[in-house]
Design a binder for these strands. Structure first.
Lengths: 127, 127
DNA sequence: CGGCATCCCTTCCGATACTG
DNA sequence: CAGTATCGGAAGGGATGCCG
């Protein structure tokens, strides 16, 4: 059932599935969306501090992309020094359930996957 | 709720969430898993033909990775010319529901995302 | 038929330095 | 504080050619 729909869309130049999954697949989007999903509204440096290991550049790029996609909204307070707050839009929030399911699956099956990888790499070394 | 768990795992060196999401996020894995999810068992060149636009190299790499992760099983028939069949493992099948949810979300919200992107890029051109 | 090896171009992403 | 700009290494991925 999925296949035909999926193939039809995935192979398009502006494939929606791929477009979305590009966000899911990149290094920081899921983490940012999840943090905003729980934290509500956060400032740039709060996000930076919570994540801890992200570079300023990638946080900027990630947020800009999510904003362009309409998943995150950006509010600027015209102060000096500036204050910028980020929040999930309703569209962004609607993505949370699907993401959670995937994250849960990942955490539940990580040990099986890890074991499989070790077995697989072990196979090679025996040759 | 997600945040702490997610942060704890996502920032590890061998983060399980990222490891799994790397499969979901790469260019072909979702398509291959979905096709096998519907098609049952397929040969290498059948997959190649169904997808149509994938390079042989990437199909090989994708299948090898999925096999290493234990999501896809590979069966070789010792013939000449060789016959190799691919099937989802139970672990691979258990990923289908989460993937479907994400794919459904993508297809339902693609127009909203596209519209948002156009509006966002329009903003810049006006500056 | 079902790969693997190589080349090469593009994109990702971190580090660093600078700005309103 | 919240960015922008630039550089360079690393990874992704297509095209091609060879092989059991």
């Amino acid at each position: 059932m999925i296949k035909d729909n999926l193939k039809k869309y995935v192979l398009l130049d502006d494939c929606p599935v791929r477009n979305v999954l590009d966000r899911v697949g990149d290094k920081w989007s899921i983490l940012v969306i999840s943090i905003l999903g729980e934290g509500g509204t956060l400032r740039f440096n709060e996000l930076n501090a919570v994540i801890g290991t992200i570079s300023q550049k990638m946080l900027t790029v990630t947020l800009k992309t999510l904003e362009a996609d309409g998943l995150v909204s950006r509010k600027i307070y015209p102060q000096v020094p500036p204050r910028v707050e980020y929040t999930l839009t309703p569209l962004g929030e609607s993505l949370l359930p699907a993401m959670s399911l995937l994250v849960d699956w990942a955490m539940q099956n990580m040990s099986a996957i890890k074991a499989s990888r070790e077995q697989y790499s072990g196979r090679k070394e025996l040759v």
